[in-house]
Nucleic acid binder design. Structure first.
Lengths: 340, 340
DNA sequence: CTGAAAGCGCTAACAC
DNA sequence: GTGTTAGCGCTTTCAG
């Protein structure tokens, strides 16, 4: 597996580099069977591996996709990254995964880094939807490379987007609780993110439909971190709520940790609907009823769109921005009890 | 941010490509201040970004490191990947993270993929230490690219390695339990991995030192998955053990899930020492005493070694295989009670 | 101080 | 059937 080039093979077989290149890429061409066989044989024997760098330089594409995510340690993003990586590989693309550490400046550095390295396309989960980095927006708006924003967005930047319908998620969760007889339903949401706000909207809609008022003391704010949710849950247990919509994985985890600490049980003392059941599901007894966001579906949609853009941009002209919205669904487990 | 090359700038300034290249890379050279300023100015105005592909082709290096891990969804590996990515970026390297999905064939495919793409170095966590892929071993043994194996190893392949001392981890965990007055100490380990076997050795050594016999019914096998540990824990609660050494994060999680399901409490009913406290720590009440493997330390050691090799291999000759072993340490929390 | 020229390894017209 | 040639965008001797 040492370094052997087309030229080496050409010299050995006594043919030109062109022929060797043609055969090794098995292009439609008229190289005699004998030569072809010889080339293949020598190539295998010497362990030839094409130099992708050189190839990329002339082909003007790298067969590489770049991914920017805020935090690879989050289960949702880890799972997203894994899925995307797998699907890219199936399509013959490599994936460069980068981690912005929840920093908007890094977002913009990483975009540049990835583009310099000649990725053919970019998948971006921005680290902050509100604290927008000016540089990022201006870079993005005149990027030569196709990109699609996933899951989170920058306000007012027209571009391709793929996301889940968070409002629907919040609605489904809350309606389920109502259908099981609950009326005093709290929710823990992240008001500093669009996803959180939308989930809250859904919560409010479901309550509204049944003529139940949204009570301020039932709406608890929390970041998407366990510790933060743990704090929020302290306020929860001072209310008379019988059910709670925990609007993310980590939020559910923080909530449950708090409940356990107070010897409160689910669903005996509180009925809980979670979001993104990935983690909580395997961790907890009982398993949590939750709103599921199908990650493979998300990554598939994002890649489909991105690859379409890449094809379009190679072909010549590309269409206007697209937005695809995926519906989450309610997955019934054992954390909600019927109230009579 | 459209595509602008050295030539474009050269033409605009009325100088040669050479001069432009020289000043843009600010090499020690004698280009007049005036020219230099003009070049810089035009470059910025046109938004020049060097084409890394072309650069790599001539420089014969890509400033890119490849990482192969078995499963990015595991917290330990996610954290490792995040750390390595950060440190690479600080050193001006990009990181290509790939996921082998616990498949040895993928290991070998990924090695080839990354090498073809011209990574300057490779960090590998093999997916299976025993089911060795022949192809992988032969590729690795004559790889032109420096690489270091991290955390797990292939038997009989002389190469650079960085790992934690698992035997010590098992020893520290068990000794702590003994010091707190426990004698009926069970352990849940993964016998299908070297890490598991070594941790078991440490467990046995600690017991042996105190003249406590290793009881077969106390040694429970489990994969590194929550579900598997959950099953193993079912057997645990049929013994009369008062303490248990849960030899991984997921194992601890499966164990705790089982204990909760049976309304058993920690440390009231069982004292528990876990491993890799990352997850369990934030999730559970009480926090778990555990053996900590310092991931930043691991990634630092791995990268130090790798970068040294890269330097050596560029310089000319590189030394023989190195092995660096890091010590884990016991972190006291609240999951162990003193037995009197 | 500055530029011409060669070449990294590969692909692709276009000859022969 | 097969070879020649000309780049891809950049760095780097080596001459002026």
């Amino acid at each position: 597996m040492a370094k052997v080039t087309l030229k080496d093979i050409a010299r050995e077989v006594g043919l030109s580099v062109t022929s060797v290149s043609l055969v090794l890429n098995n292009r439609p061409c008229k190289v005699s069977e004998t030569s072809r066989r010889k080339i293949l044989e020598v190539a295998r024997r010497k362990g030839y591996v094409p130099n992708q760098i050189a190839r990329s330089l002339v082909m003007q594409h790298t067969d590489t996709i770049g991914l920017i995510i805020p935090n690879i340690e989050s289960r949702f993003f880890a799972s997203l990254a894994k899925n995307i990586e797998l699907k890219c590989r199936e399509r013959g693309y490599a994936l460069i995964i980068t981690n912005s550490d929840d920093s908007p400046e890094n977002d913009s550095k990483l975009v540049r880094l990835l583009v310099n390295r000649g990725v053919d396309g970019l998948l971006i989960v921005v680290s902050d939807e509100f604290a927008t980095d000016e540089r990022l927006v201006s870079d993005l708006s005149q990027l030569p490379t196709p990109y699609v924003m996933v899951d989170r967005f920058i306000e007012g930047l027209p571009c391709d987007k793929v996301r889940f319908n968070n409002e629907l998620g919040g609605y489904l969760a809350t309606r389920h609780l109502i259908e099981r007889g609950h009326e005093r339903i709290a929710c823990i949401v992240n008001p500093r993110s669009n996803t959180g706000r939308e989930r809250l909207d859904g919560y409010a809609r479901a309550l509204g439909e049944q003529g139940i008022a949204v009570r301020a003391d039932y709406v608890l704010g929390s970041d998407y971190y366990i510790a933060s949710a743990y704090e929020a849950a302290a306020r929860l247990i001072e209310t008379d709520a019988t059910a709670v919509f925990a609007s993310s994985d980590n939020i559910a985890l923080g909530l449950l940790k708090r409940l356990y600490a107070h010897d409160l049980r689910v669903p005996r003392d509180y009925s809980v609907v979670s979001y993104d059941n990935s983690a909580a599901d395997v961790l907890f007894e009982p398993a949590l009823t939750s709103i599921e966001q199908n990650v493979p579906e998300l990554s598939q949609a994002a890649l489909d769109l991105l690859f379409r853009r890449i094809a379009e941009s190679e072909a010549g002209e590309l269409g206007g921005p697209d937005e695809v919205v995926l519906d989450p669904k309610l997955v019934l487990k054992d954390s909600v009890r019927r109230l009579d």
